[in-house]
Every structure is written in C-alpha cells, then in structure tokens.
Amino acid sequence: MSGRTSPWAAVMGAGAWLPGVPDVRALMDGTRRDDADGPPARLPVRLRRRASLLIRMVAEVAAQASDQAGISLGAMPIVVGSAYGELGTTMEMLQELSIDRSVSPFRFHNSVHNTASGYLSIAHENRSPATSLAAGWQTAAMALLEARTLLEDRGGDVLVVVADETLPAALTSTVATPVSGALILRALPRDESETAMGTSEIDRALAWLADLRQEPALDGAAAPAPVDRARPADPGVDPGRAFLRLVSAAAAAGARPGLPPVRIDLTGGGDRPWSVAVGAGSPRAASRRAPQDTPTRRAP
C-alpha cells in the first residue's frame, strides 16, 4: 500500500432510504413508515421535476449524510454505484421506442448511468470529479474501492452512494425493491489512524466484518445464496442492501458522533476478493477480531 494515507477512512456522515425506512435512525430502530410517494426530492426546483426515483434516492441519502456530517456537498468528489442505473427511465424509453419509434430527448439524456451523479453535481454546484459505476454483485464493494483510491489520491472527503431501483418484472423474475445508502468518508493520515485508539479500547472495540456480498437483506427477504463462482452473474445479491449493512454498522459503531473508521481491504484472488470492516476500535483491533471465514456480526 502506498504511504500517505491508510486504508482506513473516517465515516463523517451516513444516509439511508428504502421504502418504509426514511433514514438511518429508522434503519437502526426497525421502525417503518408509510411513504408510498418515495423519498423527498432534495433538489432545486428546476431539477426536481421529472427526477427519477434513482435521482431522488441519491439526492436524499447524500443530503442526509451531508446534514449529519455538517459538510456541504459542494466540493467533494462523488462516487455513485448502481448495478442497474436508470432502469425506470430505460423501461419508459423501451416502451416509447416500441410503440412510437421515438424516444423523448429528456428521457434519453436522463437514461445515462451518470444521471444521478450529474444531478448531484449540478444541484450542489460541485465541479469536482464525479463518477458512476457498476459491478453486478460487487457494485457496493467497487464503489467503496473507488472512494478509497480517491481518498488516497486526493485526501479530503468523498461521497459514496449505492442505490438501485425496482427491477423490471417484464424483463426478469428477480425481485428487488428500491434501496439507497450513502457515506461521506474522510481520509485519515496513516499515522493518525494507527494511533487513534489506545490499547485499552481495543478489548471493547466493536469489530464487524461486513461481507457486503453475502449479508442478508434488511427487509426480511431471504439471504442470498452463497456466490457460485461458476455463475457469478447470478442475481440474488443486492448491492444496495449490502451497502446498508455497512451504513448500519457505521452508525452503530459511532456511539460518539463522527468517527467510526471503515477499513476497505482488497486481499485479491480466491473467493473472497475484498472485505470491509467497520469499528470504533483501532484498525489493529478490527483486523485482529474480524472473523475471516464467515460474515458474522459480533456483539461488543
């Protein structure tokens, strides 16, 4: 690993939205609320009109994270991970194309995968780099990896959002409902992150290994089957819900506001190519206590 920053980042703020679960507090409490209209569109009026669900989710969770962190979204790089992108808009275009042999210009330019990241940059007048990525069942991991390499490269803060819309029943039998989560991560200097916690804290440190691709879904759906390497594009893994495990873990670890560190490791190869650990303890504590074989949530 290169020298300037550690693989640990501090969580400065978090956001979550899925149907019935309007924020991180509701995610932690298990409370549910009727919100059939979707998330509030936290966007300037001129951008709000006809904003897709994905755009609204990304704007909402990013705003939650920004509010919690007390940091504006005006300058930090933006990473949006979405396995499927602007699915609703794409389905509308397919219908138009099929019926009228035309596509609305607005729908077309709002169907690109980086529509939500573009909206965020416009809404917050953020001229920093913004990226939009997908990696199937590894989407959450790759979004975090992208965030990590940005932190190592540029320092400062990075907004990372993972979100997906409902899968279209017309095209797939896989059922997945909307989900979105956000973290604002801050680069930690290597020496600071390794001495941030005293040894006395190690023993009572929380150390969770959130294996994002095997965590069960939050809303009571069955846990996804273990990944079969021979057919790894199989559905059944939901990057957005996996990401929310990390959001929850970060929120739970952050008994003090501010700074539960997140470790993003890539060990490379094998059937466990990457892992994410969250802890209020030191990096050493997390790496010592984090189980390597099964994704397990440890009680303190």
Binding site: G85, N114, S117, L133, A135, G136, Q138, T139, P273
Partner: peptide, 27 residues
C-alpha cells in the same frame, strides 16, 4: 446481457484476469 455486470463478467472471463473489476459509465 442487459446489466453492466454481465458485460464485465464476460470480458473478465475472456481476458482471464481476476483482480477488482468494475464498469465506469459516465456516458
């Protein structure tokens, strides 16, 4: 076929490489 993850998987397998893999889609 439709999802970016599918295309990524096909290219990764055809190339025989196993490190981190992602699609960047900024139009």
């Amino acid at each position: 076929q439709h999802s970016f993850g599918g295309l990524l998987e096909a290219v990764g397998r055809a190339a025989g490489i196993e490190g981190p893999a992602l699609v960047v889609s900024t139009a």
